[in-house]
Design a protein around this nucleic acid. Structure first.
Lengths: 341, 341
DNA sequence: CTGTTAGCGCGTTCAT
DNA sequence: ATGAACGCGCTAACAG
């Protein structure tokens, strides 16, 4: 690949002159400019950003470290990130941690070495260490989705507590009293907050909670399946179930189907996180939908503001509201509640 | 951020010695090694890969340029790419072109400047130019999914023609004679090949094709919706429809629903590309499913082989078979065909 | 076993 | 209006 020096020789000028032509910096006479441009074209010269980055200590590259791009929620977040980044002239390196702290640590290490300008991080685990380690290197981080205790860091997240509260209130208003909760990992703030919203709704309505109705698992189909089987074994069966995310809900529905049951006929089901409308043929689940695209976009915008030094000094917290979308999965028609009545 | 020189001074050695310790290259006495390691820890030194890359002309970064990560097919491909890349110590820069040739050109330009080691490209349009431009710079490219005429380049793709043939044969075997095809853009090889498979199946069965039953659109829901509306306006109505991808199918189903119709009752529907099982509650569509993850993975492996100079000299073409998954959307139960009979 | 020299490609600073 | 020198951070090649 041709270098700036090759171009310079070809055009009979000094490298710096080529630089000036390319970057439109400084004065260059029209004739030399033409000669340089001709040489650039002939040699198919492509400037080397690496060298520039080395000088300017800016790579115009962001890191997006999330758990699994395969989850449509993260897919949408990623799209929001990439759009916002590319609009500002930044590229995005994508990494999947699979909730594995070692993988995360390894990615962060390599990305620091690559000198990405900033991090968008969906942290695995609740340890502050990895985030602090990045901050110590002076690289800005914006955390997405999950609160991490013990660090001062920018965060853009959905309102898990509020969304959960609204979903459970909805169920209660429909007449449910025994509501099971299939949650995610204890260590992840969204799971904890969704459970918190669940409890608050019960409390507000004077319903005595039953601890055995709250299960902690993982944000996976397999876990949703397992948890639902536990719930179905209870007697009497709960009349409603709240799944803490979309995968858990799909796993739960599978267990339901296997047991010869369905929603809303045999029990009501609500869940956090919608499935993008493009993928689903008949929207069916009542959900608390988070603005995934906006989460990625606004997180990136905040990060870019930090990079340009325009953001306020203190760490910012942006909480995006969850939207309750009511669909058939909690209909009262032909519902267990009415049968019982 | 500390540099290798800072560490060297702190440890009272030369920079090269630090380099040797970090990279485990060359001999360093245990004592100096210990001193250096201490200095590294104290200064929280993070080696600068940029500088290494400048020297070695290797960034350990791949570019993944696709149309839209939001399509679950590409999401899965991307996951395959990222897994294979990270396993080999490479990072992945993700770019969405939205089938926009200008966006694609701009991304390719910047990525060349960033000196990515290789490209995984889902080309927009059928122009060879962009690919040739990359090859001229000596950077390996592996094309995913779509044939591009007029270039010699590695490609990993699904068997669109064969998958389409099987789907249409299935419909014919079920008794259908008037089968509509909702295809993608003419310029994209997968769309053309799926139409080709459609024609071959009809020919093989001695069914006279009706050109007005083949519509060319885009790989989007909106287009699927529009095309289906055209088809529904035909009299007599076709008894089956073949959608060229998942988004077209979902759009088509929406049009069907609006018209007060459904599959398989009023007509049969089959489509290319499955929706990952994790996202869908009741798998319903009969599809030709492509091994998306494998496409990403094998494409990346091929690219990495090129990078290490191990691949055969000639361009390779890897064709992955499509798997026919038969589900309810083409059931004969209560089917239009039987009503007509 | 350790250090010196030089250069990867580029652009700022200071001359001319 | 154009150029020379220097350095960004790192390491291969060659001493010692």
């Amino acid at each position: 690949m041709a270098t700036i020096r090759d171009v310079a020789e070809r055009a009979g000028v000094a490298p710096i002159t080529v630089s000036r032509v390319i970057n439109r910096s400084g004065y260059v006479s029209p004739e030399t400019r033409a000669r340089v441009e001709a040489a650039v074209a002939e040699l198919q010269y492509v400037p080397n950003t690496l060298a520039r980055s080395l000088r300017f200590k800016k790579t115009h590259t962001l890191a997006l470290v999330l758990t699994d791009i395969t989850n449509p929620f993260w897919t949408t977040v990623a799209r929001g990130v990439e759009d916002a980044a590319s609009q500002a002239g930044f590229n995005v390196i994508l990494c999947n941690t699979d909730e594995n702290e070692k993988k995360q640590a390894e990615y962060l290490r390599v990305l620091l070495q690559k000198r990405v300008d900033g991090f968008l991080l969906v942290p695995t685990g609740d340890a502050a260490g990895p985030i602090v380690a990045i901050q110590k290197q002076g690289i800005p981080v914006v955390v997405l989705d999950r609160l991490v205790p013990g660090v001062e860091v920018d965060i853009v997240r959905g309102d898990s507590e509020g969304g959960a509260y609204q979903l459970v209130r909805l169920l209660i208003d429909l007449g449910h009293r025994r509501i099971a909760m299939l949650s995610g990992p204890r260590g992840i703030s969204t799971a904890a907050q969704r459970v918190a919203g669940y409890w608050r709704a019960l409390n507000d309505c004077g319903i005595p909670g039953e601890p055995e109705l709250v299960l902690w698992g993982e944000y996976t189909q397999a876990s949703g399946y397992e948890m639902m089987r536990c719930i179905l074994a209870l007697k009497p069966r709960p009349t409603a179930v709240f799944a803490a995310n979309n995968f858990i809900a799909v796993g739960a529905l599978r267990a339901l189907r296997e047991a010869g049951l369905w929603a809303p006929d045999d029990l009501s089901l609500v869940s956090f996180d919608d499935i993008p409308s493009g993928l689903v043929i008949e929207p069916f689940l009542t959900v608390a939908s988070q603005p995934a695209y906006a989460m990625g976009q606004r997180g990136t915008e905040l990060l870019l503001r930090r990079l340009s030094g325009q953001a306020a000094a203190e760490a910012q917290e942006i909480v995006l509201p969850a939207e309750i979308i009511i669909r058939r999965s909690c209909d009262r028609l032909r519902h267990a509640l009415d049968v019982a009545a």
